[in-house]
């Protein structure tokens, strides 16, 4: 396949960025999207040019490192997958592909396609845990959890912290991400004990670090690679009102 890439290049946070055009003559449909970028980078290095910087690690859709806007969609046009799982099969010969970093004020660009997502960690540090010291846990089967509840907690717990929900949202809201964690703990008996303090601490921190509010557009759910549901946001709101 032949492709034209329009990639956002930005040397660092201080300078302005712009789109550069790269022509790719030999893209195999069996390549993964990031492998296509690897092959571009190999060429750039060989030509003594600065390769495109992007975050990535596991390359199997689970660590949440990767993420970029591809043709206007976080993680690209295919639903429910991460950028590293996007296959070049989904692109057509001759296509022009636009590649940009997450665009959201709380996620400043570090270089090219790399953004700073440490605001996510700050919210988790504020209260995303159950307070139990090592060695003090009761026998695991002493607290029974109904299977459907445990399964539901799991469905919230699979968020990979990639930030696509924030990038997709016109208000740069982190509600889907935060509510997934709050839901996981609110559902489980182990997490109920601190539920009130947790939801207040995490929501406060979310506002403090600059994420916007939710206007129920649902773009986050549509773009989330792990299909985290909007019902988590509703649960978080309920938990928040109950917490006062």
């Amino acid at each position: 396949m032949k492709l034209t890439l329009k990639i956002w290049r930005q040397k660092n946070a201080q300078v302005k960025g712009n789109f550069e055009t790269y022509r790719m003559d030999n893209v195999s449909p069996e390549m993964a999207f990031l492998e296509m970028l690897d092959s571009l980078n190999k060429r750039l290095v060989e030509e003594d040019k600065d390769p495109v910087a992007f975050d990535h690690d596991c390359r199997e859709g689970i660590c949440g490192s990767c993420g970029m806007y591809i043709n206007g969609h976080p993680h690209g046009p295919v639903p429910a997958i991460t950028t590293c799982h996007l296959s070049m099969r989904f692109f057509k010969d001759g296509e022009t592909v636009w590649i940009e970093p997450w665009r959201a004020k709380p996620f400043p660009v570090i270089k090219d396609l790399i953004v700073d997502r440490s605001a996510f960690d700050k919210i988790q540090i504020a209260g995303g845990y159950i307070s139990v010291n090592t060695g003090s846990a009761p026998e695991a089967n002493n607290i029974l959890v109904p299977k459907n509840v445990s399964d539901e907690a799991f469905n919230s717990a699979i968020c990979i912290g990639c930030g696509a929900c924030v990038a997709a949202c016109k208000n740069a809201s982190a509600m889907l991400f935060v509510s997934a964690r709050i839901s996981q703990f609110a559902l489980l008996p182990q997490g109920r004990i601190e539920a009130k303090a947790r939801v207040r601490a995490m929501v406060d921190k979310m506002d403090e670090v600059g994420f916007g509010s939710c206007s129920n557009t649902g773009a986050c759910e549509a773009e989330c690679p792990k299909q985290i549901k909007l019902t988590n946001i509703a649960r978080m709101n309920r938990e928040f009102y109950k917490a006062f």
Binding site: A137, I143, S150, D151, A157
Partner: peptide, 13 residues
Amino acid sequence: IDHYTALGVPFAR
């Protein structure tokens, strides 16, 4: 296993 369960790890049930 006790510790992870107490931390809210949703193991299969």
